[in-house]
Amino acid sequence: MGGLFRAPKPVVVPPPPAPDPAPAAPPPEQQGQEARAEARARAARGLAGTIATSARGVLDPIPAAPRKSLLGE
Results as ranks from 00 to 15, higher is better:
A22I: 02
E34Y: 06
G2F: 14
D60W: 15
R40E: 14
L47H: 10
Q30I: 11
L47D: 02
G32R: 15
A55Q: 08
A37D: 09
E29V: 11
G72V: 03
P10H: 01
P23M: 03
V58L: 12
M1S: 15
L71G: 08
Q31N: 10
A7T: 09
A35E: 15
K68E: 13
V58C: 12
A55D: 15
R67I: 07
L47M: 06
T50R: 15
A64I: 12
P23F: 01
P61T: 08
R42A: 11
G32I: 06
Q33S: 05
Q33F: 07
A18K: 14
R45T: 12
E73K: 09
P26Q: 09
R42W: 02
R56K: 10
R6H: 15
I51D: 02
P26Y: 07
P15Q: 02
I62A: 15
R36L: 13
A44L: 11
A35W: 14
Q30E: 08
R36K: 05
Q31L: 13
K68A: 12
A41Q: 11
P16H: 02
G2S: 06
V13S: 04
V13L: 06
A22R: 08
K68H: 13
A24S: 04
V58N: 09
G72P: 00
G57C: 03
L4V: 13
A7F: 05
Q31F: 05
R42C: 05
M1V: 07
L59G: 00
G72H: 00
G46D: 06
P23C: 03
R45I: 13
I62Y: 07
P14Q: 01
V58E: 11
Q33W: 03
G2K: 11
Q33N: 06
G57W: 07
A64Y: 12
P15E: 03
L4F: 12
P15K: 00
G2T: 12
A52T: 13
A22V: 05
V13C: 05
A7M: 14
E38D: 03
I51H: 06
Q30R: 12
L4P: 04
P14C: 04
G72M: 01
A7N: 15
